[in-house]
């Protein structure tokens, strides 16, 4: 069985032209990662749908695959493409978080109120910064920070040049740093009360 573990994504995609079931290898390997990336951007419910659609699109267009051993950048590129219809929803959720301190997308991992409040303060700044970015800059920054893609992989995923990736990343990080250093606006009191009672 050792040899089976050495199969690359490109092998699985090539084999799936003869036997569709072979595409399952790609699904097993990457579905969770694609879902996690989408969930961080638009929440779990929408991520369920978009992750599924990502693999439908990938299967449909597998003949266009470029043969790279790792298909994750390609799949994330499809996921980002599908996300474009939901940029407004993403920005709305980020804005709400920035204003209220309540993140409708994330699952709380903090046990006590103090930790939750610290995280929420930091999170509000980040949410404000992410919301204020151009959509394309946010795509690049989050593929870099959340999906750990290299410049080359991001360029491949988004179908842009590496120079574009560099400039978008530079612009996004500059904006992020500026807003992280700015003081946070106070959250709305009534919503804060809602949060503590959750």
């Amino acid at each position: 069985m050792v040899m089976l573990e050495t199969y690359t994504d490109a092998d699985a995609i090539a084999a799936s032209r003869g036997d569709h079931e072979c595409f399952r290898h790609l699904f097993d390997r990457h579905f969770d990662a694609v879902h996690r990336f989408l969930q961080r951007r638009v929440g779990r419910q929408l991520a369920d749908d978009l992750a599924a659609e990502t693999f439908v699109q990938a299967f449909r267009h597998r003949d266009r695959y470029d043969g790279s051993p790792d298909a994750r950048p390609w799949l994330l590129g499809i996921a980002v493409n599908l996300m474009r219809r939901h940029y407004r929803s993403e920005r709305r959720q980020l804005d709400a978080y920035a204003r209220t301190g309540i993140d409708l997308v994330a699952v709380s991992g903090f046990d006590n109120a103090e930790e939750r409040a610290d995280a929420a303060n930091q999170g509000r700044r980040l949410a404000r910064a992410l919301s204020s970015l151009r959509d394309g800059d946010r795509d690049v920054l989050l593929l870099y920070a959340w999906a750990d893609l290299s410049y080359e992989e991001i360029a491949l995923a988004l179908g842009v040049r590496i120079g574009t990736v560099r400039s978008r990343l530079h612009r996004g990080r500059r904006r992020l740093r500026a807003l992280l250093e700015a003081p946070a606006e106070p959250a709305r009191d009534h919503l804060k009360g809602d949060e503590s009672s959750r």
């Binding site: 879902h35 969930q39 992750a51 999170g123 989050l142």
Partner: peptide
């Protein structure tokens, strides 16, 4: 980047 990586890092597997 470190802060951004921690942002929404708690997710629920599908």
């Amino acid at each position: 980047l470190e802060l951004l990586r921690q942002f929404r890092s708690e997710t629920t597997p599908p």
